[in-house]
Design a protein around this nucleic acid. Sequence first.
DNA 1: GAATTACGCTACCTTCAGTATCGATACTAA
DNA 2: TTAGTATCGATACTGAAGGTAGCGTAATTC
Lengths: 179, 179
Amino acid sequence: MSTRPPGRPRSGIDDAVFAATLRTVHELGYTRATVDRIAAAAGIAKTTIYRRWPSKGALITACLVDAFGPAPLEGADRAEIITAAIRWIAAKIGEPGIGAAFAGVFTDAVNDPELRQILSTQLQDPYRVALQEVLGESEQRVLFFVDVVVGTLLHRLGMTGSPMVDVDDLVEMILRDFR
Amino acid sequence: MSTRPPGRPRSGIDDAVFAATLRTVHELGYTRATVDRIAAAAGIAKTTIYRRWPSKGALITACLVDAFGPAPLEGADRAEIITAAIRWIAAKIGEPGIGAAFAGVFTDAVNDPELRQILSTQLQDPYRVALQEVLGESEQRVLFFVDVVVGTLLHRLGMTGSPMVDVDDLVEMILRDFR
DNA sequence: GAATTACGCTACCTTCAGTATCGATACTAA
DNA sequence: TTAGTATCGATACTGAAGGTAGCGTAATTC
């Protein structure tokens, strides 16, 4: 059942495109990482990218979803889980290309409701739901948690150009509030 | 001394340009608030804008410096000062056009070192210095404070499209950390 | 009146997101 | 083997937007 449909199958280039995206954003920054350059870095045609993702923002979002993967929400107690989650997202944002891509697509989303919808549902919602379950907190409270953690990390990255290196202060502050 | 220099004096249009900028950003959002449209809304030529500010980001930054004004860093003790400061910046970011302009120029600055310099020195530094003095905290600590407060407020605005209405949680969290 | 500086206007350059088209390619079904 | 279908690469193009150049004109000082 569910045999392969007719027509030429899509070539498995998603991973190559994601890698080329992060590499290009890391080297040139979000704005100068044009779709043309990303396509060239991946060795494919620009039109192929637009056949798979409806916009540059959607491509970046898909790339981030792939790069982040599932969050490691494990630990003996709430404090350990929260600490691990903060350190995990901070480390991810510190990886080459990921932080710049995240900040770039986030800022694009501010004035683009469609992109905001994509970003919210495809990237944030899975982690929000998982956090609500494992922490037993309300949606409102988890959203506040995400605002503080991600907002702080992105503000530091955007204002200084470098990711936050010492996350201890942030962890302690959050722990005092969510213990 | 310091008599008026020769040549046609600049017309006093800065206030009109700032007002037109906030109005246009409020109506159309940061991206669609093009320099052409802002100039048209102010009733002047686009070239006049570029004679006074070197880029769109610099114009928005100057507009924000003007709109924010000095921070009300008053209160009987540290807790009152911190509370007032947080409520003040949250209210400002909630004003029509200001939050969108702030988020927009911030995100532009992420991949534009020149603009980041302008934003950091002209907008953030005055408040950072004033906070260091009145709170007696280190530069590192005050920068962390700014990262958390502004980052949280901008993340909420960018992710939901609306400013944070209930700032109490943020105030309490910060107070627990900076008491 | 001469020099100087700002303004408005028009035209222009460049970059980039996104689209259209067309021939070639890879696969399914008969 | 052939017809049908869907993808890919390549090229060209559109439209929007930031920013610049040049020119005539207006305002002010000396």
